[in-house]
Design a protein around this nucleic acid. Sequence first.
DNA 1: AACTGACGATCAGTATACTGATTAACGGAC
DNA 2: GTCCGTTAATCAGTATACTGATCGTCAGTT
Lengths: 182, 182
Amino acid sequence: MSTNTGVPATTGQTTQRGDAGALYQLPGHLIRRCHQISVALFFEECAAFDITPQQYAVLRVLAANDGVDQITLAGLAAFNRTTAGEIVERMEGAGLVGRRNSKLDRRMKNIFITETGRRLLADANAAVRRVQERLLTPLARDERARFIEYLARIASENNELSRAPLRPLARGRGRERTSGTA
Amino acid sequence: MSTNTGVPATTGQTTQRGDAGALYQLPGHLIRRCHQISVALFFEECAAFDITPQQYAVLRVLAANDGVDQITLAGLAAFNRTTAGEIVERMEGAGLVGRRNSKLDRRMKNIFITETGRRLLADANAAVRRVQERLLTPLARDERARFIEYLARIASENNELSRAPLRPLARGRGRERTSGTA
DNA sequence: AACTGACGATCAGTATACTGATTAACGGAC
DNA sequence: GTCCGTTAATCAGTATACTGATCGTCAGTT
C-alpha cells in the first residue's frame, strides 16, 4: 500500500538553482495533474462510447432536467456558456441530444436528451463508476470520503470565484416539456 | 466556518427522474470544478503579469533546469509534447524564454529563461502563493495538509495513467548550458 | 558505410475553456 | 405603446490538451 512510484510526491527538497520541487507541491499544480489523470481514465474506460467527460455530464444533467435552455444547462454542469453551446452542437450531431426553439421565449433553445443519449448514459454509468474507483485507488476507504468532502467543500465555498460557477435550477424555472412523449 | 453557500455539496438526495445530484459528488467532476476555480484565482491574482498557469510552470521549471529540450520540459511540467511546443512558442514571442538549436543533437531545441522571464517569475511568486491560500480557505489548517497529501498521492501513484505523465530529469541528462553567462 | 529502430520537433485535426462583442427578443417603466 | 436594461444565443479570437502522422536526426547493429 501507498508505495511511492518514484515520482517526487512529497519531497521537501530544494533543487540546485531555483526551486521547481515546490511547484510539485502547489495544490493548483496537483489539481491539474489529478484532472488530467481523471480525464485519461475516463477516455480509457469509456473508449467504446465515443464520449467526453463533459458530454457525459450533459447527459446526466438532462436525464434529471430535460428541456432546459443552454445557459441553464451550462449552469447545471458548471460550463462556460459558449463552451456549452459547442458541446451541445457536437452532441446534436452525434444524435445524443435534440434542440428545439422555445415557444415561451423565442430567444431560448431547449435541449432534450434522445433515446440514443439515454441508452448511452445507462451503458456508460458502470464505466464512470470504475473511473472514480481507479482514481481513488491510492487512498484508503476513510481517506476517500474525506478527500471527496474536501473537494466538495472547496468547490462549493469557492463557487462564485469560478468563471463558470454551478447554478442550481431555481424551482419551477425553465424545463419545457417534450411535446409528445413525457 | 464551513458555511454551505447554497450549492448542493454533499446532499445525498436523488432528483425526480434520473440523478444529476450524484454527478456533483463524483471526484472527477469535483476535481474539474476545483481546477476551474484554481485557474480563475490564478488569472485574478496574476492579471498584472499577463501569464497563464502553464506559462508560470514553465518559468518555474526552467529556473531550476535551464536549457532543457522541449520534450524534457514537457515531462518536467506534465504537459503534452505538442502543447509544450505551443506554450514555449507563445512565451518566446512574449520574450519570456529563448530557443536555440542544440549543437550536441540537431533534433533538439534547448529552451532558456530570459532575464524578463526571471524577473516576471520573481514578481509572480507572491501572487501564486495567494492563489493557493485562497483556494484552500474552506479547509482548516490540518485539513489543508491532508488534502495536499491526498492530491500528491493520487497524482504520484496514478502518474503512469496520465496521458502527460510527470517525467523527472534523469541525473546528468539534457541541460545544455547557456553559452556565455553561467 | 548502409540499415534500422527510436526519438525531437512539428503539423493537421479535434475538443474544451474562456473573453468580449453582437443580435434578437423579453419585460417592466413611463 | 414606446423606451431601455437584461438576457439567450452566437461569433471571433485566444489558450490548453490531446491523437496520429511526418520529417529529420541519432545511435547501435551488421
